[in-house]
């Protein structure tokens, strides 16, 4: 891709605590996010995927490495003016719509809080128009603005959370498990809203999730993270048809298939990190196929590529 990434993370490391209690949550992670793309970070709880999102949001301080937004370094302190711009252009959507909305505020205030903070409107009329517009865009009615969060269902509340991010006219949305707390039937509504907004506004998503079946449906590219290390990154269909890293294989084998006969024959692969011999032969981030990266040492890379199924990508 010759395209310039909108967000570029290079060798990112985040440590918490000091001395003997120090814990490295994210170790040397690098990836690019391109304009209009959905990149998913997939891993289990404690893998560091949320920490990466928060480091980009500048909530967690970065220990080493760089994060560039349109070429500008944002990992370290930036000026007040840039700070304001970043707070606006990079927005976040949270996991639990029951916990992320202020119960005492009306939807009107919840959605416009960011506008108030940055004085982004000339008149009260303009502010109202922007709130109404944001609500309409996520499929809610403008009259909902005068209601309180408890009057809405989980799916509606999650869409309010999306409207609140959207009203700031962001370029990047970091969505941290935005649908894992929702019922299957409501999940579909939220996925559709996210997909439509991406198309209409050429938003870029960093989608943080553990559910690969959802991730496959919405992502352009998928990065798999395990204990703070990226282990594999590829186009979504490429990753599903030709997984290389044993951890990725384990994750794929765990996806439930809605087909009883297929399920009875599915076997679960369990990943055991002690299989690696990294003390004598440390791994490197290597490009196994064009655009398909994997964390492996030379011996592993050869074996994994040799064992990979060369089947063409099946369209879902």
């Amino acid at each position: 891709m010759i395209q310039e990434p909108i967000l570029s993370v290079h060798n990112l490391t985040v440590r918490f605590g000091t001395g003997r209690k120090a814990f490295e949550a994210v170790s040397g992670v690098s990836f690019d996010l391109f304009e209009g793309e959905t990149l998913s970070l997939v891993g289990e709880s404690g893998s560091g995927k949320t920490t990466i999102g928060r480091a980009i949001m500048r909530v967690h301080p970065v220990s080493t490495g760089s994060i560039r937004y349109r070429g500008q370094e944002i990992a370290a302190a930036v000026g007040t003016k840039d700070e304001k711009l970043l707070r606006q252009k990079i927005q976040m959507i949270f996991q639990d719509p029951m916990a992320s909305l202020n119960e005492r505020a009306k939807i009107d205030y919840i959605v416009s809080e960011g506008l108030y903070n940055f004085r982004l409107f000339a008149s009260e009329k303009e502010r109202r128009a922007r709130v109404e517009n944001a609500l309409l865009e996520v499929g809610l009615l403008p009259e909902f603005a005068s209601r309180f969060p408890h009057e809405f269902s989980g799916g509606q509340r999650q869409r309010i959370g999306i409207a609140r991010a959207l009203v700031m006219e962001p370029e990047i949305i970091i969505a941290d498990e935005p649908i894992s707390a929702l019922d299957v039937s409501i999940r579909a509504q939220v996925i559709n809203v996210l997909n439509r907004l991406k198309r209409d506004k050429s938003l870029s998503y960093l989608f943080i999730a553990h559910d690969l079946s959802v991730v496959r449906f919405i992502s352009d590219r998928i990065a798999v993270i395990h204990r703070g290390h990226l282990v594999e990154l590829a186009q979504a269909e490429e990753l599903f048809s030709r997984p290389l890293h044993p951890y990725t294989r384990a994750l794929l084998s765990a996806i439930p298939v809605p087909d009883p006969d297929a399920e009875h024959n599915r076997s679960l692969i369990v990943y055991d990190p002690s299989m690696h011999r990294y003390d004598s032969d440390p791994p490197a981030w290597s490009e196994a196929y064009p655009g398909h990266y994997v964390l492996a040492n030379p011996a592993e890379l050869t074996t994994w590529v040799a064992n990979a199924t060369p089947e063409p990508a099946l369209s879902p």
Binding site: V184, S185, R187, S213, R216, F217, P256, V257
Partner: peptide, 9 residues
């Protein structure tokens, strides 16, 4: 029908 596993990308 609303299962993402059965959706068409």
């Amino acid at each position: 029908a609303s299962l993402p596993q059965l959706g068409v990308k």
